[in-house]
């Protein structure tokens, strides 16, 4: 969070020229090996390290996809190119598990979670950014403080609330809490709203626009970049969440994909039937949508992470 603000602080640094001149003077004084040579060696080393690290970060994906195209006996052979290439696993996995239902469930939860949290967080952020009212700072302090509370401290009563509403065993508890907004997104969007010129909204009010119109038709469209970041973060969080699936879902047909993948690991992994080729294939199916989302929203996600200091 500090990085954004520091950008402006670092801006007006004093007197550039004296040091610059001094540097140029210093260069010829360097002994023996020319600086250009050293620079080349360093550049090659950095390049090699970067390539090596890239392989380390990307290879597990390649391994996973490759393993999903191997027959059962070859899954652990660590070959890059499958010895016998087969798409049978992708057929078999639909028979072994209700994969289609899981994908539909997850898509539903993810879309609902993303839509509700984006709209409601924007509403609340606008309330805090646009208006002055008694207790505003205290309430916003509570927003920030609530980010510190570990999930475990609220997990059990939250379960009891959904239980008393008879909603345990349905998909509702996986997204409905988002109707109330999320502290981190409220904080992020408020920062963005504060960066917009208030004169714009004053003028609209003078022209007779109501509070809702100013928010919905003027402020929100201007906030699109930040809304996209919030939506992408939440999409990823909702799609990949396991714990809520473990707590709230009972029947296999109702599982989300991460919950389903865990149940497949329990059924087909160690202590089970040893069908790792199905586990690998289900892992690819679980991960692939996130890879696609990342390549579509890459710029926004990375800028969002860099500027907010979030840990998605």
């Amino acid at each position: 969070m500090s990085t954004l603000d520091r950008a402006s602080e670092a801006g007006p640094t004093t007197s550039v020229t004296p040091e610059r001149l001094a540097t140029e003077d210093a260069v010829p004084a360097e002994p023996q090996r020319s600086p250009r040579q050293r620079g080349t060696v360093a550049r090659v080393l950095v390049g090699a390290a970067l390539v090596l690290m890239t392989v380390a970060f990307v290879y597990p994906f390649v391994w996973l996809v490759s393993a999903s195209l191997k027959p059962r006996s070859d899954v652990f052979d660590n070959r890059l190119i499958p010895e016998t290439l087969t798409f049978d696993n992708y057929v078999e996995v639909w028979n072994a598990a209700p994969m289609a239902a899981w994908l539909v469930n997850t898509a539903f939860v993810t879309v609902m979670a993303t839509l509700t949290v984006t709209i409601s967080s924007a509403l609340v952020a606008w309330g805090f950014a646009r208006y002055q009212f008694r207790g505003r700072n205290l309430l916003f302090g509570l927003v920030l403080a609530s980010m510190m509370i570990p999930g475990a401290a609220t997990m059990i009563p939250t379960y009891l609330i959904w239980n008393s509403l008879g909603l345990v065993g349905t998909l509702t508890p996986l997204w409905a809490g988002n109707v109330f907004g999320t502290a981190f997104y409220i904080f992020l969007l408020r920062q963005f709203f504060l960066g917009l010129p208030p004169e714009l909204f004053d003028a609209a009010e003078i022209d007779g626009a109501g509070h809702w119109r100013v928010f919905w038709h003027i402020a929100l469209p201007l906030t699109r970049p930040a809304l996209v970041v919030v939506a992408l973060f939440e999409f990823q969080a909702a799609w990949t969440d396991l714990m809520r699936g473990l707590i709230y879902l009972r029947d296999r047909e109702d599982f989300t994909v991460p919950r389903g993948l865990k149940s497949m690991l329990d059924q087909f992994g160690f202590g089970g039937e040893w069908h790792w080729e199905l586990i690998v294939t289900a892992s690819v199916i679980t991960t692939l949508p996130m890879v696609i989302v990342f390549f579509i929203g890459q710029r926004q996600i990375i800028q969002g992470v860099a500027s907010t200091g979030t840990k998605g």
Partner: peptide, 27 residues
């Protein structure tokens, strides 16, 4: 900064009400 002051008190409350309810019930 931070918008205009004299609005009916309930208007900002209306905007932050989703979080307020959520904070009380789920936090």
């Amino acid at each position: 900064r931070g918008g205009s002051g004299r609005h009916r008190a309930w208007i900002p409350l209306l905007f932050i009400s989703p979080w307020l309810v959520g904070f009380l019930v789920f936090m």
